[in-house]
Nucleic acid binder design. Structure first.
Lengths: 210, 210
DNA sequence: GTTTATGGATACTGCTACTATCCATCACAG
DNA sequence: CTGTGATGGATAGTAGCAGTATCCATAAAC
């Protein structure tokens, strides 16, 4: 198919497709002549993947590029592909908490990891975010939320178990990587939406009259 | 305190504080003379609140403004304040799925809501996101993830229960609203971080050699 | 009484994610 | 075989967001 059809089916404007081609998010079509190329279903799939990450999961375009480079690599270990995805979806945050709030939060988070038996790399991007968030909640006098950190962690393990189980059904290693990454990235969007809907439902019941 | 001290304690640059003042995120200091104002702990707290929402929860400044306007209102019902927060943290997404994928996803989501007994407003921002995400996952051939939607929803209820329990301990209605909003907004950051750490830990165990 | 800081207004900047334009082909209808 | 519209590739321009920078008249601190 030509670019116009790709655009029509995917709903992505032609100039945007050209932009993704320029940025190497989308591989070039097969050239049939110096200025004619044809695209196939892999391009369509890739384009949909890009839009899902950009529109739904709010991943920056540069991050999508990193994720896709990982997926495209035939040699990169899955764990590293996942690491790329984690890195791409976790914004780098500057340290904003005072150093003693930061230290207290670090201690608490390390204890949590130890008690849960989670072993993570010391510079995992999410670790910093977690520490800063705990520190912020404390500083904002929301210690009660922090006190439930362990319950949160326990509930989170439920998700992880679901996802591992879901992914076990995929046998092709190629699809496996894409499944794991989509589970990680779009899973976040899914969970966030569900949580807000659950909140809204509860909130309507409890606080419509306060 | 003067603006320089507010800046030093909070770690927010003076021009940025002025920007927040311009945008009415931060109430003006009390004028002691035509070009001198003094700020107090409420300003410091508000500033920290803004930074937590902007830096950690990635809420757009305009969204922070809406959230704070809600919190500041003495008359707005809590449910509406929560609604503002939901609206502020859920990006408006254009419809990107084809209409039959959209319809199928809508049906599935409605069934989920019915089976869980969640009653939500038909134009809740998270509802659209959820539908589009389900549609995207299907289109991307990740039906296995979608099939676990109900398990996700069940796990999400755990969070909501934790948060309702946590918030019950707050009795002042003023603090209550701030607690609920922070629990909603920063809770998302907290959960996302925990989930990534849990994933990383599992991933290291399972897929370092694949 | 000079140096430094402040409030308030206005203008400017850097970044991201596109859009728009241009042009030399190329495909295809007539 | 010629005219019309689409295409690939390059370059330039744009909108929105979140700050930064500058200016100025005044006020505070030494």
């Amino acid at each position: 198919m030509r670019i116009a059809e790709l655009s029509r089916i995917s709903g992505v404007p032609v100039p945007t497709i050209k932009y993704y081609l320029r940025e190497n998010l989308l591989p070039p079509g097969e050239l049939t002549s110096p200025n004619q190329a044809s695209y196939d279903d892999t391009h369509l799939h890739r384009l949909r993947l890009i839009r899902a990450l950009v529109d739904l999961a709010q991943v920056p375009v540069a991050g999508v590029k990193d994720i896709l480079e990982g997926l495209d690599s035939p040699t990169m270990p899955l764990h590293d592909k996942i690491g790329r995805a984690h890195y791409a979806i976790t914004p780098q945050r500057q340290l904003t908490s005072t150093s003693d709030a930061h230290d207290a939060a670090t201690t608490q988070v390390q204890e949590l990891l130890a008690s849960r038996g989670w072993s993570v790399h010391a510079d995992a991007p999410a670790l910093n975010t977690l520490i800063e968030t705990v520190a912020a909640l404390r500083t904002l006098r929301q210690d009660h939320l922090v006190s439930f950190l362990d319950s949160y962690a326990a509930a989170v393990e439920t998700f992880t178990e679901i996802e591992v189980a879901a992914v076990e059904t995929r046998r092709s290693p190629d699809q496996l990587a894409e499944s794991v990454i989509l589970g990680t990235v779009l899973g976040e969007t899914l969970i966030a939406s569900l949580r807000l809907l659950s909140h809204e439902s509860i909130s309507a019941r409890r606080w419509t009259s306060s």
